[in-house]
């Protein structure tokens, strides 16, 4: 009973937040912490707003973001740099996948 109440409260809270964000056209990356993936040509991907690295090999880089995981697949992938907020990946990019 107690748990259901809490769940509902969370749902209401979420819907109010999304209503405000959408009606005021606020940036979603700040309010939802949504991940930003910028792909520049074939050779460069910039990932912002990620949480951490899960897996890193030459062929695959898996990153944890809020609500999903982002996988960059390719060949000879190199992390040019990464900080708390963003990561720049270079190499031959073959795909960007999102999984839950």
């Amino acid at each position: 009973m107690e748990r259901r109440k809490k769940n509902r409260l969370a749902q209401v809270k979420e819907s109010v937040k999304s209503n405000i964000v959408e009606s005021l056209e606020l940036p979603q990356d700040i309010f939802y912490g949504a991940v930003i993936v910028t792909a520049l040509g074939r050779g460069q991907v910039l990932v912002e707003n990620y949480k951490g690295i899960i897996e890193y090999t030459r062929e695959k880089i898996r990153l944890q973001a809020k609500g999903c995981q982002v996988t960059v697949q390719g060949e000879q992938l190199v992390v040019e740099y990464y900080t708390h907020e963003e990561m720049k990946i270079t190499g031959m990019i073959q795909g960007i996948l999102y999984d839950a």
Partner: peptide, 20 residues
């Protein structure tokens, strides 16, 4: 090692030109 990398970014230690 992955945890190491995440901790580095949390501590604001810059790492670049990373290769596997």
């Amino acid at each position: 090692p992955e945890r190491f990398l995440n901790l580095c970014s949390n501590h604001d230690i810059l790492i670049w030109n990373m290769e596997h």
